[in-house]
Structures are given as C-alpha cells and as structure tokens.
C-alpha cells in the first residue's frame, strides 16, 4: 500500500458503481482499477467501452456489472463513441432536451490493444477535437482477452503467444513499449497522467482531476495481469508497486504540458525485482536484463529532464 496514513483507505468513497459477479480472472488489476475509477466518478457519468477483457467480463448477457450508463460498440472506436456521447449530451443539454441538466462526465475506456494499436486513430481524433472527456487506457501489455498476443504496448523481452521466446529467437518481444503517454501529451491536451491501482489514492486523485479538467484528459493505467504475465494472482497489486519503485512504470502527470512526478522514491529497486516474479520474463539472461535496466534508466532520465524543465519554467 502506498505510503499514506494507514487509515486513509477508510476515506475512499464507499459507493460502488462496478458490481461484483463480473467474470475477470482471479487477481485482475484491470477490474480493480476500473472499480476505483468508478468509485471516484460516482453517479453522473457515462462510459463508452472498447471491446476487450473489461468489456466481456462485465457484460455477459443477461448481466451487466455497470451501475452507470454504459455502451460498447466495437474494439477500436471507444474514443469516437465517447466523442459522440459527449457532443450529444452537450447539444441536448443546451437545447433543453436531455433529461439531466447536471454535469455529466464522459469516460472512454479501453485496453492497450484498443488504445495503442487498433484504437490509436480514433483516440488521436478525439483528443485533437478537444471533446470534454476522459480516456483511460488499462494497459496489461498484451491482447489478454484473445490469449496473450503481443501488442505495441508489450515490453521488450516479454514472451507472449505471438512474440514467443524460442530456440532460434530467445528474446521474446523485440520492440520497446510504445510511449502512448507522450503521444497523448503531444496533442497538447490539458491533462495526461500515468496511474496504477497499486497506488489507489494517486489513481483516484488523477481521475478526479481529469474529470474536473475541461477538455480531453488521458490516463494511462498500468494493470498487471496475473494470467498473461504468468504470476501468482495475489501479486497483482504488489507487482505494480515494484514497477513504480524500479522506474519501469513511473507515476507522473502532464498538466498543460508541465511534467510532474506524483509518486517518488528515495531509492529505486533494480528491474530484476520486477522481472523475476513474472513468468513472461523467465527466459531472459543476464545480458537481457542488463539491457532492460539500461533502457529503463534511460527513459526515466528522459522523463526526469522533462520534469526538471517544467519546474524551471514554473520558477
């Protein structure tokens, strides 16, 4: 648990808008994150959900886990559907034709495949047009719903069913994880953040900020997947913490172009602490791990430079 007052958990909103009985695997951090997001946004919001784990496990007919209005159309278009909902609610409220005149938050949610790969165009369009909505990507770093195929969000060295580590090619995934957070930030939108349910208050705070920010907000949420990452389900929350502590997944936000770390660590753990509990990295040798350590250090330094530059500008 994050380094807060031990009793802080009691202060989280008690209401639930994502019911139990959903069909997610044991220890699914995506569902944990979605539950925390739902808690934070409360009653007055509408979800446009992409096809993916979150969609199928929460909406198996005749059931729905959602206690708020929810629509699923297809895989690659959550951002576009949400754009439509946002535009419609806005114009209907203006014309006095919408049944609710309170502010309604519009939330698009999708997995990494639905965001960084097939949904990238619709996402870019929605961010560029400036719809007042939140887009959350729940990143479990592969196509888990279809059986753990690699996406462009799969990290270097991870074995998946379409980037398998084999005798002739022992590495697994050859490419670096696509930096979608920077792509979102490059749209000059007012709010971009990374988040993780391993830091529930940081996540909830960011969702709150995103909902209060006029215009588009993008949150990239790191959601460990015990099934796809081949690790024990009880580790789903702790591994997310190690990801932050080892600089693999730093927690930061970009507010109007200004970078700020939201969770910092006095001392960082080596990446091996993060890689070791996960079966998807078990095949890596020392050289591979050293290479990953180098990559992680380098991108973290790059991030720190941006943070530093932002704080200088603020001075």
């Amino acid at each position: 648990m994050e380094n807060l007052n031990v009793y802080a958990a009691k202060m989280a909103p008690q209401q639930e808008f994502l019911a139990g009985g959903h069909r997610a695997c044991q220890g699914c951090a995506e569902l944990l994150a979605a539950r925390l997001v739902a808690k934070t946004l409360g009653h007055d919001y509408i979800i446009a959900n992409a096809t993916g784990c979150l969609e199928i496990v929460t909406s198996s007919y005749p059931h729905s886990a959602w206690e708020v209005p929810w629509i699923h159309v297809a895989f690659e278009n959550a951002a576009a559907v949400a754009s439509g909902v946002e535009a419609a609610v806005k114009i209907l409220q203006k014309k006095g034709k919408y049944p609710v005149d309170r502010k309604i938050t519009i939330l698009a949610q999708a997995g990494d495949g639905g965001t960084v790969d097939i949904g990238l165009q619709a996402l870019s369009g929605a961010l560029e047009r400036g719809h007042d909505m939140i887009y959350i990507c729940y990143d479990n770093e592969a196509y888990m719903n279809t059986g753990v195929q690699r996406s462009s969000s799969t990290p270097y060295g991870a074995t998946t069913t379409t980037s398998p580590a084999g005798a002739a090619d022992p590495l697994g995934q050859h490419t670096m994880k696509k930096n979608i957070v920077e792509i979102a930030a490059a749209h000059n939108i007012p709010y971009v953040a990374t988040a993780s349910p391993s830091y529930p208050f940081d996540l909830m705070e960011k969702v709150k900020k995103a909902s209060e920010t006029p215009g588009p907000a993008y949150i990239h949420c790191f959601v460990p997947c015990p099934t796809g990452w081949r690790m024990a389900p009880n580790l789903a929350v702790s591994i997310g913490r190690i990801a932050a502590e080892s600089k693999v997944f730093p927690l930061y936000e970009v507010v109007n172009g200004e970078y700020r770390m939201t969770v910092t660590h006095k001392k960082h753990r080596p990446v091996i602490d993060y890689l070791k509990p996960q079966g998807r990295f078990r095949h890596l040798n020392e050289d591979n791990i050293a290479e990953i350590q180098q990559q992680v250090d380098k991108s973290y330094e790059r991030l720190l430079k941006k943070v530093k530059m932002s704080s200088t500008e603020l001075d």
């Binding site: 019911a19 069909r23 198996s60 005749p62 059931h63």
Partner: peptide
C-alpha cells in the same frame, strides 16, 4: 441490460 449491476446475481 436495464438492471444496473445485476452481475452480482452471478456467484463467482
């Protein structure tokens, strides 16, 4: 599905 949160009927 017009019964919000009715997945709770399902016993996981």
């Amino acid at each position: 599905v017009s019964r919000p949160g009715c997945s709770a009927e399902y016993r996981t």
